[in-house]
Amino acid sequence: MNELDDSQLKEIIAVVMKVDVGEISEATSMDTLEKWDSLAHMNLVLTLESEYGISLPDDDAVNMTSYKLIKMVLGELLGGLK
């Protein structure tokens, strides 16, 4: 899959963070979600990479610590694929 679907992205974040999908919103970030620690973040990056078939550059991998930033980074990468 390489189309960015909001509800799919929220579900991935929710599953990796082990929270209910209702807890993930546009405003969710490492600061607002307690379970989003550095280990969970690593897991999230790896899961997104395998799910979207992409490889994230170091800076993006480290810095995309909110729902909005993830959406932006993925949007650019996947848009570039088209």
Binding site: I12, V15, T47, S50, E51
Partner: peptide, 11 residues
Amino acid sequence: SSKFQIIKSVQ
């Protein structure tokens, strides 16, 4: 299966 699918199924 992707990692996401595996984590979801395990859960």
